[in-house]
Simulated assay, not measured.
Amino acid sequence: MTEKTLTVKNRAGIHARPAALIAQTANKFSAEIQIQKDSMTVNAKSIMGVITMAASYNTVLVVKADGIDEKQAVETLYDLFESKFEED
């Protein structure tokens, strides 16, 4: 299992558009990918799951992946968060 801590850097937080980008990106990988916020864990491949986290600006999350392409999946999602979902 590979995991990495992420911070929501875009001012609007994770709303519908970033949630869709996260799910679309996660679905490119065969690994099982989860995002954890506090005690809540959601499937990163589910748009609704990602939205229900209600992750706002500066929220710290942990992304975890388990599978053959887990390292690439975690790094790709990390890069997506670092790019602020191309919003700012």
Score class of each variant (00 low, 15 high):
2 T>E: 11
5 T>V: 13
5 T>F: 05
7 T>H: 02
8 V>N: 00
10 N>L: 01
12 A>C: 04
12 A>N: 10
13 G>C: 03
14 I>K: 00
14 I>Q: 00
16 A>D: 10
16 A>K: 09
18 P>M: 06
19 A>P: 04
19 A>H: 07
22 I>W: 04
24 Q>M: 13
25 T>R: 14
26 A>C: 07
26 A>W: 01
27 N>T: 08
29 F>T: 08
31 A>D: 05
32 E>D: 15
34 Q>E: 14
34 Q>P: 02
35 I>Y: 01
37 K>I: 01
37 K>G: 03
40 M>H: 10
40 M>I: 13
41 T>W: 01
41 T>V: 15
42 V>A: 02
43 N>W: 12
43 N>A: 05
47 I>M: 04
50 V>R: 01
52 T>F: 02
52 T>R: 03
53 M>P: 11
54 A>Q: 07
55 A>L: 02
55 A>I: 02
57 Y>V: 00
57 Y>A: 00
59 T>M: 08
60 V>R: 12
61 L>C: 04
61 L>K: 10
62 V>W: 02
62 V>E: 02
63 V>H: 01
64 K>D: 05
65 A>D: 12
66 D>R: 08
67 G>S: 11
68 I>W: 07
68 I>K: 12
70 E>I: 07
70 E>W: 07
70 E>A: 15
71 K>G: 14
72 Q>T: 15
73 A>W: 06
74 V>S: 09
75 E>G: 05
75 E>S: 14
76 T>A: 14
77 L>P: 13
79 D>Q: 12
79 D>K: 11
83 S>F: 08
84 K>S: 03
84 K>Y: 06
84 K>R: 15
86 E>K: 14
87 E>C: 04
